[in-house]
Design a protein around this nucleic acid. Structure first.
Lengths: 221, 221
DNA sequence: TGTACATCAGTGAACGCGCGTTCACTGATGTAC
DNA sequence: TGTACATCAGTGAACGCGCGTTCACTGATGTAC
């Protein structure tokens, strides 16, 4: 196969890697000009193929965009999973790390982020996209389950799903407003990470968790 | 002036209301097809004028989009102000009502919402837009100030700016994920309003506010 | 191991279309006197 | 009150352009035997 690292073919008739190359091209174009600013034809051009070639791999522009968004969710899930690290070294530390990973992803992958959350793709008509998105959320939910299980005995055990939705929403709001990687980012008198960490700490305190989140013993499996 | 309620002129040479009519047309088109899916030419057509007419009022498509976003922020501010109602009948009630108004705006005005937050307009190059956006945020901030002033004497008084940023982010996250008025809305096993209210209550509890937020006396002016 | 052949993944030319933009123009409106 | 005139806010025709899409085609690849 004669294609190089950038996904540009070098001379052969067959590209060999066109689907990936088109998605990468779309991503680059989204990064430059927003989700609105990429066209099928331009993606083909920047992958070095004729304008008819993409039709072998995607029905239309929207299908390409949906593939990009789906790949984004998969990478997002992988990042969250890595950040969670199955709750090591302790649940509260790992929990906060997941939130940081959320912000880091938004900051480092603005094109993915807007394809995933701001491209207007309807989730109903993209079941694969919905599944990928739910898998990413499942990481936050699993982390919340583990944290909820750690609630002190004297307080009512918080519903993990609600916790997860609150944390997701807070992270998403901060990411969208203050930690986005593009020109629409709003200025903030502190780091987005600090804002999120403080918010999560206050929220957990409100649920009855002790202020010092470091447990004496290892968290329950 | 011979133009009717829909902003369509009825026969005269001069439209008389074209600027407003173009913004309304853009809003309708955004509602139908997302911020990406409207063109200068189409806005002109649906306002009933020639494709050259918009140039008398807007330099280009982006300037029209920015005007729409700015008008959106102004209406948003008005809604938040009305919801806040200067803290009546009491600060905590009014505070929660502001959050609800955030969600209601997102739900009822998806076109404005996406023009304001998801159109990728850089805030740096649109000072008027930034100002309009900050005015809307100022309502949340003023409400937070008043609430922070009500903190019980035995707890450290919370920084109102941080509070405002947390509430804004949480509201924005919930609105963007679960209360949007378009097809990208995610399903939720409860109402977005309930999710937000619960989140705010837990957050305020974490700051040391009493669980029952109704004060015995009227809040301080 | 070679060969014939089916299939895959691309080409490139062509098309109709709508967009953005410019231009000289003109009808309507407002105002100075 | 009338009139002349400047200005405003539109027209409509024209243009070049790039996009989406189709089509018959063809080079490359894989596989049956």
């Amino acid at each position: 196969m004669n294609w190089n690292k950038r996904g540009r073919r070098e001379g052969g008739y067959h590209h060999g890697n066109l689907k990936e190359a088109l998605m990468q091209a779309a991503l680059d174009l989204i990064a430059q000009k927003g989700p609105a600013g990429f066209t099928f034809a331009e993606a083909a051009r920047s992958a070095g193929v004729s304008p008819a070639a993409p039709y072998r791999h995607f029905r239309d522009r929207d299908e390409l965009l949906a593939s990009v968004a789906q790949q984004g969710f998969e990478q997002f899930e992988a990042r969250l999973t890595a950040a969670w690290d199955d709750g090591r070294p302790d649940t509260p530390t790992a929990f906060q790390r997941v939130g940081k990973a959320y912000l880091a992803f938004a900051r480092q992958n603005p094109a993915f982020y807007s394809a995933m959350f701001e491209s207007g793709l309807p989730l109903e008509s993209n079941p694969a996209l919905l599944v990928a998105s739910e898998r990413a959320f499942a990481i936050i939910r699993a982390a919340s389950e583990r944290l909820a299980a750690m609630a002190p005995p004297n307080v009512p055990r918080p519903p993990a799903l609600m916790m997860a939705l609150h944390i997701w929403s807070l992270s998403h709001g901060i990411a969208s407003l203050f930690a986005r990687g593009d020109a629409a980012r709003r200025k903030l008198p502190m780091s987005a990470e600090d804002l999120l960490e403080a918010g999560v700490l206050i929220y957990l305190k409100g649920l009855g968790f002790p202020t010092d989140q470091r447990p004496a013993a290892a968290p329950p499996r």
